[in-house]
Design a protein around this nucleic acid. Structure first.
Lengths: 133, 133
DNA sequence: TCTTGACCTTCCAGTCACTGGAACCCCTAT
DNA sequence: ATAGGGGTTCCAGTGACTGGAAGGTCAAGA
């Protein structure tokens, strides 16, 4: 299987797959013409990576998770710790974004949005700070 | 006022302020020894920038907002359009993160997190995709 | 057989918004 | 004189790709 088929199968851009090889996440073989060949194992790894990335895990987390995924004698607590930490980060980001949204949506609502210069948004940016509860 | 005072006043790191000068967002004067001097106007601009950045606006949005902020004949609709677009992006990001969080928190809950290798998280990453409603 | 077009390869540069660090200058107090 | 705590510039690195150039490979059609 060539790279573009692997890309189609996994939903990852070919460029990204090459990059993943570069940084040692996958190791496709090569055939005589130098093209990458993706077997079932590599395809599995790529799928795993695509899903883990979609869950927002960093590349380094993915590297660790992939190693655990392949290690039949892993402890599930190792995986859980990584996932929990990441979950906490996601929660924190959500909280940040909600604070931004709340502040900003108030400002947007207050703004007439016409051709006059009076603008509560600019005033608001000048004066308001983002509240984090 | 020297850069470290400006940093304290605005809450921005000195490095960041230098960077903002580099990319033309602020233009402090210099005194004879080459040190940057921040007057009231520049300090205002920095404060505005810090707040706009805290609201998640990109640097380029900040540049535009700053120009509008300084332009007494602006139309508030120009500001509102930028803010609305940004607000939509924030909403989208929140939705993405919530989808991640929901998927991941289910997986974390399902995982015993002990020293056995059986791990619903890894299985879940293998099998699940993140649902976006 | 030649050509066309769709593949594939490598490598380099750019993205965004900083951040760290080196090497050096300036000012004040001891 | 020296020590320290400012300040300056410039260069490189971050994360996770992404775009693009320059060129090799392959299968199908004229």
């Amino acid at each position: 299987m060539n790279i573009s088929d692997a890309a189609t199968q996994t939903g990852l851009p070919a460029k990204t797959i090459r990059y993943y090889e570069d940084i040692g996440l996958v190791t496709p073989t090569r055939n005589t013409n130098g093209y990458r060949v993706f077997g079932e194992t590599e395809l599995h790894k790529l799928t795993f990576l695509a899903r883990a990335r979609a869950l927002g895990f960093s590349i380094e987390d993915c590297r660790t998770l992939l190693a655990l995924y392949e290690d039949q004698s892993r402890a599930s607590s190792d995986v859980k710790r990584i996932a929990r930490t990441h979950l906490d980060e996601i929660e924190a980001k959500i909280a940040d974004l909600i604070a931004m949204r709340d502040t900003l949506s108030h400002l947007v609502q207050a703004c007439a949005g016409d051709d006059r210069p009076d603008c509560p948004i600019l005033k608001g940016i000048e004066a308001t700070s983002v509240r984090k509860d």
